[in-house]
Computed example of a mutant assay.
Amino acid sequence: MEKEEVSKLWSIYKKFKPHLLMFSAQLGYTVLYFITEASFNHGMNPHVYVTYRHILGGILILPFAYFLERKQRPKLTVALLLEIFILSLFGVGLTLNTYFASLKYTSPTFVASMVNTIASLTFVIAVTIRLEDLDLRNPRGIAKVAGTLVSLAGVMMMTLYKGQIMRSLGHPLIHIPGKTSIHKDSWLKGSILTVSSCITWSIFYIMQALTLKRYPAQLSLTAWMSFVGGAQSAVFTVITQHKREAWIIGFNIDLWSTIYGGVVCSSIIIFIQLWCTVEKGPVFVTVFNPISTILVAILAYFIFGEKLSTGSVIGAIIVIVGLYLLLWGKEGDAKVHIKPEDQSSVSHEDNKTVKISSAEKNVYVLNCEP
């Protein structure tokens, strides 16, 4: 009887393993927002953080990419290196520098909510360049358009309308050092930076889909982008930051936030998302993105004592509704149809190949998180 119970528990675990992993990934991103905000308030330069984090992430991913994809990597050419350079600029160098800089002027709740708009912006760009099919005679096609418009409406509300400040329930359980009230001008500056980063992030996902066709080694490409993006961020930091002290990290929150970002977010979560994409497809991965938004809002209000505005809360809800409309519309795109007569001849390894092909076709909707 005990063996049967263990067997049942094991089968349940295997069934829900991707769900548990993706929920854990969103928990990891939730912690990221607060630990980086605390680090920036402590005085760490966001551009130095991006540089150190991605160099560390690249070092950790490199051995896995080297051994696991030894036979999969194509030969590097000058044209491909240039493409990786531009891809790294949009994926790391430009995007994440503006993204994390915006966290200094806004709040974790706002930034986490805005991430959900990347799928909608990517869809708009994909349709414009005809990488995405749009059939308005199909309910799913209508859902794609409706979801995009609803998400963008939520963004406009969060950016332009703050509304009344929700009353705090008491003293925060955890205080983030250096946290002060955000001025209206700073909020607008931060909003512009966040929106800009989401636009460039969307361009990155489109480019990533095209680059993966010529360089289909995902781990190796991630390692390349980490090193090249980290180098780009270093050059940008040297130009904008002339103080040598900015590069020095003490044994404090700055060190822990860098290690956390490099080890957990740029390495472990990347592995989780790649595995879940192969097993369940890209739509499954993106469905979990709003979880971090909800968790950040709950923690920010109840634990860290962050002041939430009604405009931000309503706007975030609208963005999430729009995201799920878009994902429902795209769900049909990620399905792979196999004829019944061919199903028996497909081996376990072939099934995985089919899933990977499905993921690569819609790869631009992957991992809309920092």
Rank of each mutant, 00 (worst) to 15 (best):
R137L: 14
R167M: 09
Q72F: 05
G305F: 05
A146H: 03
E245G: 06
A234M: 14
N367S: 13
G305W: 02
I55R: 00
Y215N: 04
M225F: 02
K104W: 05
D333K: 10
D254N: 12
F251R: 07
V287T: 10
L325G: 15
V238P: 01
E4I: 02
W201G: 14
G28E: 06
E369H: 14
S107N: 05
I86L: 11
H54L: 06
M225W: 00
L212P: 05
L60T: 04
E369Y: 13
A300Q: 06
Y215F: 13
E341Q: 14
S266F: 03
H42A: 14
S196K: 02
L152C: 03
L366H: 11
L62W: 09
S181D: 10
L81E: 01
H183Y: 06
F304I: 02
Q218F: 00
I318Y: 02
E4Q: 08
V287K: 12
E2H: 09
G229P: 01
T128W: 11
G28S: 08
I12S: 03
L160N: 12
A112S: 15
I55W: 14
C198E: 14
N97I: 00
N289I: 05
R167P: 00
H175W: 03
G28A: 05
E132L: 07
V78W: 13
R167W: 02
I249N: 02
C368F: 14
T277M: 13
K189D: 07
M44F: 04
A334Y: 07
F85S: 05
E2W: 08
I259E: 07
I298E: 04
K14P: 01
L221M: 15
V195G: 05
F90V: 00
L219K: 09
V283M: 08
K189F: 14
P46V: 06
M158V: 15
L27I: 08
A112G: 06
M1L: 09
V78D: 01
I303D: 03
P340M: 11
V31I: 08
A316F: 04
I129L: 05
S186N: 14
T95I: 00
P18C: 10
I174T: 00
L169D: 01
V31G: 10
W256G: 03
T98Q: 02
D185V: 08
A209F: 01
P370F: 12
A38N: 03
M157V: 13
M22C: 11
H42R: 06
D333C: 07
G190L: 09
F304L: 04
F40L: 12
N362A: 06
I291Y: 05
P139R: 10
A231M: 11
L221H: 04
V228F: 07
L76T: 12
I142F: 10
R137W: 08
G250S: 12
V296A: 10
E132N: 07
S226V: 00
K361F: 12
Y33L: 04
A246P: 02
F251A: 14
M207Y: 09
V321M: 10
I317R: 07
R244D: 05
T36W: 04
A234W: 12
P74H: 15
K3M: 09
H54A: 00
L169N: 06
Q164R: 15
L27R: 05
I239N: 08
E2K: 00
T36V: 14
I59K: 01
F85T: 07
P172W: 08
G261E: 05
P172Y: 03
V111G: 06
H183S: 12
P340G: 11
F64C: 12
Q232P: 00
A234G: 00
V354M: 15
S186C: 02
H242N: 15
M1N: 11
